[in-house]
Design a protein around this nucleic acid. Structure first.
Lengths: 255, 255
DNA sequence: CTGCCCAACTTGTTGGTACAAGCTGATGCA
DNA sequence: TGCATCAGCTTGTACCAACAAGTTGGGCAG
């Protein structure tokens, strides 16, 4: 065990005390001044150690208040139930899920037409720069920013299903609306990635330091070709994605 | 637009130049000294800006070398094909996938018996503290640490399938071995989460700043009860998970 | 020519100082 | 009583200085 730099010793000691409950989630750490004395270190050194813990997502800092141990409460999202192929849900799956969990959903909504970004165009199998319809949701749970969801529809699909391009909600859900126009989604391809947020994402989701985002890209297919591409951006600290595959009757038995 | 602090201006300017290709992936940024002059700022201020970009995962720093723009190459892992229910693969799915991608797989392996951790015990529906068998893999791709995989089996299952507790690989794959002992996995439940790595995870996966980990927890079920719990930890910057659900015949057509 | 070593670059660590800015509770005035 | 203000705490930003430690390439000794 080689000698660790002092700022790392500070971080390690505090991390250990957070783990073992000396500082419980939601409680405040000693001030920088106190920690300077405890570790016989300069303020810069103490701040280096603390910022390490911030970037690990263990604590947050607020000017004038101090450092607080983060508490995580996660919200599980069932990706397979979310958009069931055999029983498409009525209305908005997100609102239903959140309400069932006893939380309060809230979302802002917007529709625009724009050239499809490169990655979306590839997934929709259209030429880069082709116009697409973007239906964009900014979602909150109990007034906490939760996720953004951007769904792109290729223009050929919009010609056949004009309500997609109209602002305002589609009451029965887009999956059902498309089915009523003869477009049936028979399969989807999901990609899940994680990275640190861009400044834009950090702003929209009000993410502090040390919190990654999860990117969920779902491409929906009819029997013929891709019909939609949905990119959902979650706060990594508040969300978890679930997939149920195969026969899970044993899962619900005798909890 | 209020005035931003200087260290943030430094970060924003460099981030913009990384985005627009002024500094390409793999290339080096100007030294701290150069940046001090360019932004008329002290070394500490420049370092604050740079460390912001490091924690965003955009650049890395090496003592004696400088700051380098990160290039990301991702490896896609197909979670649904990985452990196919109807056609369980022969041998090791990870080695097969990596080899097929033209990369070189390498893994270290270990087996131990230990009390099941709380979260694992819950998923396996056994009492906390019950002994379980852990089969642990540390996996590399082209000698780069890629993921760790910890699979826990409940002790009742090991009694019926003793080879699980023996060190050394199970050639035909554990799924097939279990099937040969009359234990058939008929469904699984996947949970995916993202967070910043613990110091231990950062060490095992050789993760620098600004790189989150993806946690993939798969609980496998027989018709009766849970039979295994696999927790895989990935580097978020190098991996992506895919799920294929439903009929995707339209996906492979006329690429 | 070969190989070693060191100068000169890079970032890493640690100390110091000063002032700005956000928050809270106590004080005191109306 | 009620409200405004301010003192005193907190973290945020910015500067300076010095030395440690990793890397590289050139020059010198053998």
């Amino acid at each position: 065990m080689t000698k660790q730099p002092k700022y790392r010793q500070v971080a390690d000691a505090l991390r250990r005390e957070i783990d073992n409950g000396t500082y419980a989630p939601g409680s405040r750490l000693p001030s920088e001044n106190d920690l300077q004395q405890r570790f016989d270190a300069s303020r810069n050194t103490v701040r280096s150690g603390l910022s390490l813990l911030v970037s690990e997502g263990l604590i947050t800092s607020s000017q004038g208040l101090g450092y607080e141990v983060k508490s995580h409460e996660v919200f599980a999202l069932n990706a397979t139930r979310f958009e069931n192929l055999t029983f498409p849900q009525n209305g908005d799956a997100y609102s239903t899920d959140v309400t069932n969990a006893g939380r309060r959903p809230h979302q802002t909504f917007r529709v625009e037409m724009l050239p499809a970004p490169t990655d979306v165009a590839e997934r929709l199998k259209v030429a880069v720069g082709t116009t697409a319809v973007l239906r964009f949701c900014h979602r909150y749970v109990d007034d906490v920013p939760w996720s953004t969801q951007a769904t792109y529809y290729p223009s050929w699909l919009v010609d056949a299903s004009p309500r997609l391009a109209e602002p305002g909600d589609i009451e029965e859900g887009t999956t059902r609306y498309l089915a009523s126009r003869g477009i049936e989604q028979v399969g989807y391809f999901d990609e899940i990635a994680a990275r640190m947020p861009t400044p834009e994402e950090a702003r929209l989701l009000e993410i502090g330091g040390g919190v990654p985002v999860m990117l969920w890209t779902r491409t929906g297919y009819s029997a013929d070709r891709p019909i939609r591409c949905t990119i959902t951006t979650f706060r990594g600290d508040l969300n978890r994605m679930n997939y149920e595959i195969g026969d899970l009757s044993a899962r619900s038995e005798n909890a």
